[in-house]
Each structure stands twice: as C-alpha cells, then as structure tokens.
Simulated scan of single mutants.
Amino acid sequence: MSFEDNVKMHFDELSENDKEIVRYLQQNMADAINSSIIELGEATLSSKSTVLRLAKKLGFRGFSDLKFQLEQDYKADKIIPTDLEQQLHHDIDKTFAYSHQINFQPLIEAIHDASNVYIYPTGFSQQNFAREFSNDLLIAGKKNYLLDGTTNFDRITRKLNQNDFVIVVSLSGNTPSIKNSIKMLNFRKVPFCSITEFSRNYLSEHANYQLFYEASVIPTAEPGDEMSSMTSLPIILGILSRKYREFVLFDE
C-alpha cells in the first residue's frame, strides 16, 4: 500500500500537527527519503518522537518502514504509464501488493462462521464480478445469497442478525441510496465487509472489515469524458475466494 493510501486510511486519526508533517512529506518526498528522523523533525518543527508516532499511526512499523515506502512511491512516480496497457499492469500490481500486506484470516473466519452470507453489489459491473465470487464461495462449500437492487438490500438488512454476514461490493463506497441500509446493519450489529476502491469512503468507515482495490481513471471516446476501470475488482475478489478455499481445504 502506498504512502498516500495509508494516509487516506488513517486520516481521521491524525492531529493537525500530523497533517502538517504529512503535507511536508508529500511536497518534499525527495528530501524526506534522504533525511534522518532527527533531520525530518527539524524540517517540520517537530520532534523525533512525533515523527515516529506519526509513522505508527499511518500503519508503518517505524520511521525506516515509512521512509522505505516513500522511496518506493517516489520511484513509481517517475514511471508514468504511457499507454493503457501499462496502466492496467499498474492497477493489478498495486492491488496484489496491497493484498500481500493485509491479514485475510479474521475476514475469512467471519465468512466461514456466519449462518448466512449475503453479497450486495452496488452496480452493474460490480454485479458481474460479484456473481463469479458468489459461485466461487459455493464451490468452496459456503452457501450465499447474491442480492440485486437497492430495495431488496434494504428489506434484507431489516431481517438480519449478528450471525449473518454481508459483503458490499462498490466502486466509490459512497452510494447515497444504500446509506440507510448500512446504518441498519450497524444498528442491528450485523458484521459486514466493504470492498471499494482505495479511498476514505462511507462504506469502509462503517464496515467491520475492509478490502480495497485500485481503480484508475481511463479516457473514453467522448472528449473530456473519463471512467473508472474496475479491472482490479475481480482480482481482490479472486484473492479472497481462493484464500477462503485454502482455509476450508487446509486450515479448517
């Protein structure tokens, strides 16, 4: 996960002083990767301990870990995709890199232990990818229900309990029409997992479990018009379904 992604995930936990240091790192990345923790503290008018606490708030093991990620991001920024194939490669690589940094086990166990699993995709493309994911879970022996339509999702959420589990597959994670349903899940203490693009969004902030994927913007035939590519969504769904199957076959 990139430095920017870590900042998005933990932004609400940062103090104003933390945010000032983050802005310095974003604007002076080349200098930061060549600075010691003491030098960085001096440059940001803060202390060594403040910088170290910030690194840990952002999910890094320490300052060296943070600086290594900054260096990787700095190198990546120098390699700008020159065509859509390279952009596709970048999206897939970033999603796989993210998947290597997270622990799937608690999510897998929650899916396995649930009495009923419900999968709700928020759009047409998400529906297509979610259908294959649903089939993968069935093949692995986990019965699940693929929901279609906001009305159906709203009705179902009013009947669920703590023994059920919901997976919401989205792009932005900010679909207005399902916010009341998400509030109902929280009210009824129904555990759920959000799967969205890398961003701070409503779904991930209210979910018990979160997964993310890279969704880059690509041009369309209409001048000035753009769309988000969800090519990496089936990647993260495929990783989750395979890890679930591994759990059932080898770890259960």
Rank of each mutant, 00 (worst) to 15 (best):
S216K: 03
H206A: 08
S199I: 02
V168Y: 04
M184G: 00
R188F: 08
I195Q: 11
V169P: 01
L240K: 04
S170T: 00
S177L: 09
M230E: 15
Y213T: 11
D154P: 01
S204W: 00
I167V: 14
V168N: 05
T196C: 12
S216Y: 14
R200S: 14
Q162N: 14
L147F: 07
M227S: 06
T150I: 13
I167N: 08
F187W: 02
I235Q: 04
T157E: 07
C193H: 00
Y202K: 01
S181T: 12
P219F: 07
R155Q: 12
V169F: 11
L233E: 00
E226I: 12
F192Q: 07
D148N: 11
S177V: 09
I156T: 15
L171K: 06
P176Y: 06
A215R: 03
A215T: 09
P234Y: 10
M227G: 07
N180Y: 06
P191G: 04
I167M: 14
K179E: 15
I235E: 02
I218P: 01
T220M: 09
L138P: 01
I139Q: 13
L160T: 01
N186W: 00
T150W: 05
C193R: 00
P176L: 09
L240Y: 05
I239V: 13
L203P: 06
K183W: 12
N144F: 04
A215G: 12
I235D: 09
N163E: 14
N161F: 14
S199C: 05
Y209G: 09
I139N: 08
D225V: 12
N144A: 07
L237A: 14
E205A: 12
S194L: 08
P176G: 08
V168K: 03
R245M: 13
P191D: 02
R155V: 00
H206D: 01
I195F: 05
G141F: 05
V169Q: 07
N161Y: 14
I156R: 14
R155D: 02
A221I: 15
I182W: 03
I236V: 15
E222N: 13
P223H: 05
C193V: 05
T151I: 13
S204T: 10
L211N: 07
K159L: 15
V169W: 01
L203Q: 00
K183Y: 11
E222V: 11
V168H: 07
L203I: 03
M230T: 15
N161R: 11
P219G: 08
P223L: 03
E246S: 10
S232I: 12
A207W: 01
S172V: 04
Y202I: 03
N152P: 02
E226M: 12
L237E: 10
F198E: 00
V217C: 02
K143P: 00
A207V: 03
P191S: 11
E226R: 13
F187K: 14
L146N: 02
P223R: 12
T150R: 09
K179R: 14
N144M: 12
L171M: 08
N174D: 15
E205H: 05
Y145F: 11
C193T: 01
L203K: 03
S216A: 12
S172A: 14
S181M: 05
Y244K: 05
K183F: 07
I182T: 08
R188V: 09
Y202M: 03
E214A: 06
L211T: 09
S228T: 10
K159R: 13
A207Q: 04
R188H: 07
G149V: 13
